[in-house]
């Protein structure tokens, strides 16, 4: 059982980075970026490409993060914002993000084919902390995740940027009227969440060993489940949600079958929405305006 817990913690760490990025993106920018998983995959491929020319190893994590940040920033600047400024409806924005995801995933497929790839990293020795089984590199990933989340926490709670982001997420109108440059904050939010996205993409591929064009997209369900569980837009909630989902799905995999992990995440999501949809109920049925 402890082994399963160990797996759960691993899954949860990667999921946490991804879910926090996703929830911050949605919370601050109000764009439901369904291309998120595919940006993760693209970042992993970017890291793979660079590892081919010698920049590999643990640098891949950083490369993935940077690629994710740049890609997300570009997406927002060249695609999402122009549509938003035109007064695009919610439906249009969702189709736009799905299109981006579809295009990204299939371009990756077209370029790299249907093969599986992996970022080579030596696993290192196996250790047994607290009865759980980890290889050194797996433990590194968990530590990287924790470090990232702590850094993010620090950013959100102590810096001016963090406060501005929280204000914009809570009430864009009010934030704008209080003198916050919401456009700049939005761009920064895309960059930061994009960094987490890319980092998560690489961490994911390191964790599961091999990846293809569809790997990131496949994580979208647990990411959404974790984000919703914690309350969309609340980064700490996403961390908690990731922990719950990560551990719950691993236990489900051991007890029921490994193939039902998605279904478990989905079940959690549905139960959440039915029982405690905090913040999900539209009271007077007004949709929050899409932030510009």
């Amino acid at each position: 059982m402890l082994t399963t817990l160990g797996f759960g913690i691993q899954t949860a760490s990667v999921l946490a980075i991804a879910a926090v990025g996703f929830t911050v993106q949605f919370g601050v920018t109000n764009v439901l970026n369904l291309a998120y998983g595919d940006v993760m995959t693209a970042s992993a491929f970017a890291a793979y490409a660079l590892s081919g020319v010698g920049v590999g190893g643990w640098w891949s994590l950083l490369i993935g993060g940077l690629f994710g940040a740049l890609f997300s920033l570009a997406l927002n600047h060249f695609l999402y914002t122009p549509f938003i400024r035109r007064g695009a409806s919610l439906f249009v924005m969702i189709i736009v993000t799905i299109s981006v995801g579809l295009i990204t995933q299939n371009l990756l497929q077209a370029i790299w084919g249907s093969n599986f790839f992996s970022l080579h990293l030596s696993p290192g020795a196996t250790i047994h902390p607290l009865g759980m089984v980890f290889t050194v590199s797996q433990l590194y990933i968990v530590l990287v995740a924790v470090a990232c989340l702590l850094a993010f926490h620090g950013l959100l709670s102590t810096t001016k940027l963090g406060k501005a982001m929280r204000a914009t997420a809570a009430d864009p109108e009010l934030a704008r009227n209080s003198g916050i440059d919401t456009r700049r904050i939005t761009s920064l939010a895309w960059m930061l969440s994009g960094f987490l996205c890319g980092l998560a993409g690489v961490a994911l591929t390191l964790e599961i060993g091999s990846f293809d064009a569809g790997t990131g997209g496949a994580l979208l369900v647990p990411i959404i489940a974790a984000a919703v569980l914690g309350g969309v837009g609340h980064p700490y909630g996403a961390m908690l949600g990731a922990l719950v989902i990560g551990i719950a799905t691993e236990f489900a995999a051991t007890i029921i079958s490994p193939t039902y992990k998605d279904a478990v995440a989905f079940a959690v999501l549905i139960v959440m929405l039915l029982v405690r949809p905090q913040g999900l109920l539209a009271e007077i049925a007004t949709t929050k305006a899409v932030a510009a």
């Binding site: 439901l32 969702i94 369900v221 919703v228 989905f266 999501l269 949809p277 949709t287």
Partner: peptide, 12 residues
């Protein structure tokens, strides 16, 4: 559910 959550749930 709000429209965007609805869309998300359907996709899932």
């Amino acid at each position: 559910l709000r429209s965007d959550y609805q869309a998300m749930v359907f996709l899932v």
